[in-house]
């Protein structure tokens, strides 16, 4: 076990970590300027933000609860990215995972069955883009965007139609009590968070410690060399889509099965929308590394959880937090930023 822990530490790229931290600091600094420009006090706003995110057991629980779905959708993006694929289909698989949980737990009220069906539908929904890519050369960005829309309207129809709650028209039917994910302690945080962490560690293990993961990464970096090295890049691509679908499908299912008090998809899909896209940002900040993604997801969860208090105490609108998130992602995307900052400090 000791060697595994040192492996984990060795696997973490220090430079990448520092780059992400620098981006976060820059995001907050520019965010402060934005706050000032709109007449808010950054100090008050930020202290409310951190208070709301980490101030109490409940706030920490909500931080971690927010981080759970985006951790999984970020894994979808990262695993594909490591295989050389820009897969933005997490959103669609997430919807399918969520609706699968609703449908199948109402057939058999068993938690594991619900999770399994979420995983299955999420994975199935990743296949069209995978096969289009491998056999017809359709670019995955195009296909996944379109498949996301198909998923959106199809699941939307299921939500307002066949699975609408007859007693509460604002929601779908609920997850039966015996199929809900257990909560941790006396909080609103379910074991979904722990499952997500386990998935991240498994993803890391897959990519860096298995022959198959080695082939996936080789295909992502140089498909020609991978083929020469006995790897079938097409197979690697298909599996990266499937594993990605598994993560997002699981994320969608757990979002509904582990989210008190509703345990249902709300009308307009407000509580399942956007997690796939946020996952891309999380993956970028986490440098497409499953272990980096754990921290990046918790950080994004903090921002989300802290927003409530920031809105109340500093009257800062939610959108400002989105601006800060956006700036951080853009800062990460600027290549060589780390070297730039390092040079500035060297000169200074």
């Amino acid at each position: 076990m000791k060697s595994s822990i040192s492996d984990l530490i060795a696997a973490f790229n220090f430079k990448a970590l520092l780059e992400s931290l620098i981006a976060i600091v820059i995001g907050f600094l520019i965010g402060a300027l934005v706050l000032l420009a709109f007449g808010y006090d950054p100090a008050v706003a930020y202290s409310a933000l951190f208070g709301g995110a980490l101030g109490s057991t409940n706030s920490i629980a909500s931080t971690l609860a927010y981080s759970t779905p985006i951790m999984l959708t970020a894994l979808t993006f990262a695993i594909s990215a490591r295989t050389g694929i820009f897969n933005i289909g997490a959103e669609g698989s997430f919807y399918f995972g969520a609706i699968a949980a609703v449908i199948f737990t109402n057939i058999w009220a068993n938690m594991w069955f619900g999770l399994a069906m979420g995983i299955l539908l999420g994975a199935l929904w990743s296949l069209p883009a995978a096969f289009l890519k491998v056999y017809r050369g359709v670019h995955e960005v195009i296909s996944t965007i379109m498949l996301n829309w198909i998923a959106w309207f199809f699941v939307f129809w299921l939500v307002v139609g066949p699975y609408a709650n007859p007693n509460d028209p604002n929601k779908t039917i609920r997850i039966p009590e015996s199929a809900r994910l257990p909560l941790i302690g006396n909080t609103n945080l379910s074991i979904a968070f722990i499952i997500a962490i386990i998935m991240a560690v498994l993803s890391y293990y897959l990519l860096w410690h298995t022959v198959f993961g080695f082939g996936m990464r080789a295909s992502g970096l140089n498909p020609r060399a991978a083929r020469y090295g006995g790897v079938d890049p097409n197979k690697a691509i298909i599996w990266s889509f499937i594993i990605g679908g598994v993560m997002s499908g699981l994320g969608g299912a757990m979002k509904i099965m582990g989210e008190p008090p509703t345990y249902a998809i709300s009308q307009g899909m407000a509580n399942v929308y956007g997690f796939g896209f946020d996952g891309i940002g999380v993956a970028l900040v986490g440098r497409n590394h499953p272990l980096g993604i754990i921290f990046a997801a918790i950080f994004f969860g903090m921002l989300r959880a802290g927003t409530a208090l920031m809105q109340i105490e500093a009257q800062v609108p939610l959108e400002i937090i989105k601006v800060i998130q956006g700036i951080i992602v853009i800062t990460i995307a600027v290549p060589g930023l780390y070297d730039l900052v390092k040079n500035v400090f060297k000169k200074g």
Binding site: A218, L221, N222, R224, A225, A226, G230
Partner: peptide, 17 residues
């Protein structure tokens, strides 16, 4: 372009194939 994966480590390349 074929013999090596430049962004991988020496070890990773040493076991390619």
């Amino acid at each position: 372009r074929m013999g090596l994966i430049l962004d991988m480590t020496v070890t990773e390349n040493a076991i390619l194939g």
